[in-house]
Amino acid sequence: MSYIFGVMIALGFIYALVSGNMAALSAGIPEAAASAVELLISISGMLCMWSGFMRIAKDCGLTEKLARLLAPLLRRLYPDIDPDSKAFGYISVNISANLLGLGNAATPPGLNAMRELRKRSGTEIASDSMITFVVMNTASIQLVPATVAALRKSYGSTQPFDIIICVWITSAVALAVGLMSSRLISALTRRGRIWKR
């Protein structure tokens, strides 16, 4: 992180030196800091509002309800995991919390799910189910893109949520591609191993 930060600052300085933009740079740096704080304040209202509503959803059991609704789908994605096992429970709570945009609530069951899967496999090599699970967590499956909408609103968007359908389609396609590629590679490498024998 220090490296990225340092390179960005240095690149800006060198480019300004070469292109003669030094005046704009010395005005721009403090301005960037000031507008960063303005931005944080202007998005916090909308972010707090969404965490409020999603907290209601969590407290009235919508997360567990969603987890039960998702069970048939998750059984297909994780054919190796017993649907009555602890690991399966953690996975479904993690996925439901992610769908509701409850990032903080999704992480603890997610970590537990990984530890359970590790206990079952007993090796330091990722299993197919672990890969499926991590790929699902590196893709955003949030139903309400609250942060993006808050940012758009603070920059004067008239309809900050008009992108929601595009976000759903894009997330679904991206996740499908990620999961299918992982399935395909698993299948190919497994066959490779049989050939080697």
């Binding site: 899967l117 990722a126 890969i131 991590v134 893709a139 997330s171 996740l175 590629s181 590679i185 698993s186």
Partner: peptide, 24 residues
């Protein structure tokens, strides 16, 4: 996630995850 579970070999996880990002 892999750090918490103590997994050293992540196989093609990163490839599939980044492919999903590119697709997005």
């Amino acid at each position: 996630y892999y750090g918490a579970a103590g997994i050293k070999k992540i196989r093609h996880t990163l490839f599939s995850a980044l492919l999903a990002d590119l697709t997005a």
